[in-house]
Design a protein around this nucleic acid. Structure first.
Lengths: 128, 128
DNA sequence: CCGGATCCGCCCGGATACTG
DNA sequence: CAGTATCCGGGCGGATCCGG
């Protein structure tokens, strides 16, 4: 999979896709994209909303998303200055599969947590 | 989003989901899951297939996936020993949204790359 | 209010060597 | 073949201070 043909060309497409997924896979990116799904937001508004993200990481994440054309950054030169972030069309299109993934996570989280506990129990049992 | 209600409880569900997504977001996990989508595979078979993954990382990735109940690990004690990895039902269910994400990446990769180049050009232009 | 710049701890992840 | 153990360098990410 991750390829159109079943012959499975090893690296060609796959690596490129990985590169793109690297952005999505990033912890903060998904959360930020999720927050911007409803409406555009300002920097500190996002900062408070995501909660747990440091200023540095939020900045870097936003830069990355902007670089990939997933969000726009509009500066309003006023005092105090104002910067709004908003999903682009591309960003909104990404929202669709991301939401599906989120739904999967939400739906199967209990199952995963049970599996984790079972696994951890077996491990400690083996060690002891 | 990432929440059932629009009231957006900040941390409760969201953090848990992030925790689950952490596994999916992992670079190797997605690729391994993708490989196992078709059929079960042995360790070194996977190692060659994924291509780029180190032995250590493949081991860690497989442990994580097994811990989360996404794959099974069946040992056949023979000489040489044989270990097969296979997707569980849960793992296969995850394959669905992951494939959608992969499709998105495949479909929009050119757009993203163009955006990146444009962005980088603007940056260097500003710096110079 | 929105960042950039810097310092630095820490963990990820590769390389290597060794077991069953 | 399928790992575990160990070492270690690079980069991620937090904290802090400063600038517009």
């Amino acid at each position: 999979m991750f390829d159109t043909d079943t012959a499975h060309r090893p690296t060609n497409e796959c690596l490129k896709i990985t590169e793109v997924l690297a952005r999505v896979g990033d912890k903060w990116s998904i959360l930020v994209i999720g927050r911007l799904g409803d409406r555009s937001m300002r920097f500190n508004e996002l900062r408070r909303s995501v909660e747990g993200v440091s200023q540095r990481m939020l900045t870097l994440t936003l830069r990355g998303l902007e670089r990939d054309g997933l969000i726009t950054r509009t500066v309003t030169s006023s005092i105090p200055p104002r910067v709004d972030y908003e999903l682009t069309g591309l960003g909104r299109s990404l929202l669709v599969p991301v939401e599906q993934l989120a739904r999967w996570a939400q739906e199967h989280r209990p199952t995963v947590e049970i599996a984790r506990r079972e696994f951890d129990l077996k491990m400690t049992a083996d060690t002891v």
